[in-house]
Nucleic acid binder design. Structure first.
Length: 480
RNA sequence: CGGGGCGUAGCGCAGCCUGGUUAGCGCGCCUGGUUCGGGACCAGGAGGUCGGAAGUUCAAAUCUUCUCGCCCCGACCA
């Protein structure tokens, strides 16, 4: 384990890797670009899964599973889709000693297989909508991997729905976008911007893509989740047709959407500090750690540990889950135990030493601010949950204030480039350009349109780049 | 795929230019002791085919050639 973490101001990339290693979240796998998610990292993923699964079920979705291997010909059916994904697909060409007649692609995403199955399942308007989600792994042979943010294999959730009408499919796209951003804001404490993607940033094969964009603490953007309105493109490519109530044949309208383990990377890069990980309580597998401290083994066994266990039990009852644990690593010195939990991002630490035992209190220390407070035993079951809420709110508010402080407006290209080259961050500007202009701007500044924010949907102004009237408000930034 | 860099203990590195004892340092790890309320100290110890192959040489971590792998910056991307 790394003893010291490189200061994030000095070398952000190194800091990020240090935090992951110190908190024992993940490692690179023996296969290039692939990731081993360690138990501590996976348990955070399980917390995220839990929040989203609850949301999906509320919206009427069900979980299912589709195969890992997709016949190459399936990908070819949608022109833009194959163009977008073929270059990064890993392909199976042999099975045993036999060369396969048709190569099998390891799924980079599952629109194609699922579209194929939907075409068999849908005949009547009564078969719609189909609202299915799957939790799985996908593979995209990325050139430059980065733990959690861009690994060749990653874990995600992908939802695929089919509807009878355009309106219903569009509503679905927006309902998912709302769920995505609500969980990000309320549970992950990531104050994301959300809105439409520009033409050049759309999902290959989609009519439109909607996104949640977070700002990391090095002021770069991370795309945290996307919801795609696929129109009838995939329905036509895979022949998903149904007979409507008038007896006419119609193509279905489909959507797809996903969030991945990248969210863990975004959590680390948004909330982490020079001591390591800082987790928002809502996604922290361990929210409270209780440390009995004494040099006397007898006192530990007869007084401190039993009391700590008792308090943990009452906290777990108050928190509605097994979120409080007692640290019994007595082979480690107290200082080492403190730092172990700092590095792992446990939101709240409760110290129970001989002094506290005599006073019938606990020393409560917040991970986010370092604030200390002595809390009486009989008050802890209310005080700890209150403090966890305060931490949750503080992490969100701090990140939001940071994003606001690093968001600027530009009226001209020179202004935009200057901001990106010097201070960095997000730049808001009216934009009326298309794919070609986006590309030019990216070549000159490395920045892309992160999104057209929904909150500025009705704003219009002169395009900073083309000078055309009626530009939409766009947010530019360098992204991971 | 283009540009740069690096492969020496679990991690981080020095040594290489100018070949020569038993290949070294910090952290971590193991044992014993003193410690223990904010990353302890002392003593002892384990751990290496110096990325691989071939060559030059009395002698290669060090020089030469080939090769494999990784990292960073681009392009691409959840």
């Amino acid at each position: 384990m790394a003893k010291n973490i490189t200061p994030k101001e000095k070398d952000f990339s190194q800091w990020y890797l240090d935090v992951i290693r110190a908190a024992e979240l993940a490692d690179y796998a023996p296969v290039r670009g692939c990731m081993v998610v360690r138990p501590t990292g996976y348990s955070i993923w399980e917390m995220i899964q839990k929040h989203y699964d609850e949301g999906f079920k509320e919206l009427g979705h069900v979980n299912a599973y589709f195969p890992l291997l997709i016949p190459r010909s399936f990908l070819d059916k949608e022109a833009q889709h194959v163009e977008g994904f073929a270059p990064e697909c890993a392909v199976v060409t042999y099975a045993g000693a036999e060369e396969l007649e048709e190569p099998l692609v390891i799924r980079p995403t599952s629109e194609t297989v699922i579209g194929h199955m939907y075409s068999k399942w849908v005949q009547s308007w009564r078969d719609l909508p189909i609202l299915i989600n799957q939790w799985c792994n996908v593979m995209r042979w990325e050139k430059r991997p980065r733990l959690f943010l861009r690994t060749s294999e990653f874990l995600w959730q992908e939802g695929h729905t089919a509807h009878a009408t355009r309106e219903e499919a569009f509503e679905e796209t927006m309902a998912i976008l709302k769920l995505y951003k609500d969980v990000m804001i309320e549970k992950l404490a990531l104050p994301v911007l959300f809105g439409e993607k520009s033409e050049g940033e759309r999902f290959p094969g989609a009519d439109n893509t909607y996104t949640c964009e977070a700002m990391m603490s090095d002021k770069r953007a991370a795309q945290a989740g996307t919801s795609h309105f696929l129109g009838q493109n995939f329905a036509k490519a895979f022949d998903i047709k149904f007979q409507n109530q008038k007896g006419e044949m119609e193509y279905a309208w489909t959507t797809s959407w996903g969030v991945s383990t990248r969210l863990i990377g975004a959590l680390i890069m948004t909330h982490g500090d020079n001591d390591g990980l800082v987790l928002p309580p809502e996604v922290a597998p361990v929210r409270v750690v209780i440390l009995p401290i004494s040099t006397s083994e007898e006192r530990l066994n007869t007084e401190l540990v039993p009391k700590a266990e008792e308090i943990a039990a009452s906290l777990n009852k108050a928190l509605g889950g097994r979120y409080a644990v007692v640290d019994k690593r007595f082979d480690m010195r107290p200082g080492d135990r403190f730092f172990r939990h700092l590095q792992r991002g446990v939101p709240l630490r409760l110290e129970l030493g001989e002094k506290e035992f005599a006073a019938q209190t606990l020393r409560m220390v917040r991970r986010d601010t370092g604030e200390r407070e002595d809390v009486a035993w009989d008050a802890i079951a209310t005080r700890a949950p209150q403090t966890l809420e305060a931490i949750q709110k503080n992490l969100h508010d701090t990140a939001l204030a940071f994003r606001k402080a690093n968001t600027f407006e530009a009226k001209s290209f020179d202004e935009l480039k200057n901001i990106l080259d010097t201070t960095g961050g997000f730049v808001r500007a009216f934009f009326a350009g298309g794919k070609a202009e986006e590309k030019e701007i990216k070549e000159a500044t490395q920045a892309t349109v992160r999104c057209l924010p929904m909150e500025d949907e009705d704003l219009r102004g002169t395009c900073f780049y083309t000078g055309k009237p009626n530009g939409r408000m766009a947010v530019f930034g360098k992204a991971y």
